[in-house]
Design a protein around this nucleic acid. Sequence first.
DNA 1: ATCCCGAGGG
DNA 2: CCCTCTGGAT
Length: 225
Amino acid sequence: MNITRKWAATKQRAIEILIRLKRLYPEADCTLNYQTPVQLLVATILSAQCTDERVNQVTPELFRRFPDAQAIAHAEIEELEQLIRSTGFYRNKAKNIQGACRAIVEKHNHQVPKRMELLVELPGVARKTANVVLANAYGINQGVTVDTHVKRLSNRLGLTENTDPVKIERDLIRLLPQEDWENWSIRLIYHGRAVCTAKKPACDRCELADLCPAADLSLLSNVLG
DNA sequence: ATCCCGAGGG
DNA sequence: CCCTCTGGAT
């Protein structure tokens, strides 16, 4: 049997994986709390390397004190730092949310830009954050969120074979139906945390194992090892 | 100890 | 490619 042919990165296989992930993780909505696109942008910047739940613990007070871009732009940086301290990386994040809000006030007429090229110019915003904001604030599913989990899983699943997140995103976009891009990446991330972990993937209880070329190798190494 | 739904800088 | 930034959960 030709391995390459068996595990070709076809749309059909990608969609089968997507259907299973949708069954495994039915709720893939953004769990950040926010009222406006600016608040979502701020919350998403804060969510770097910490959980949405912890971000949701600090944003009520943060947005009560500083409800919009104008207020955050003029806040005392020390007060911002204190309000977001528990989300980690708080000095960088405070500087970034204030810098982003100042740019939004001064260059974007108080609105979060709707284009990737403009979003990634904001401090603290790269493709990951931009995709989350575009998808959830504006319903624009222009891209796939490629973080370390998505990178690892899509390569293990044989959908991509790249280390460059931009190339991985490009390849995934070719394989996936547009309306599910953002939710698909979130489900991959869930699966990466729960089952297909970096160090010790649980292939024995993975519901994608029969669709996964890396599962064969892992099971084989278990047998041999 | 190790990891987190990252981003920026060298 | 590497490193740093940080608190909190497990």
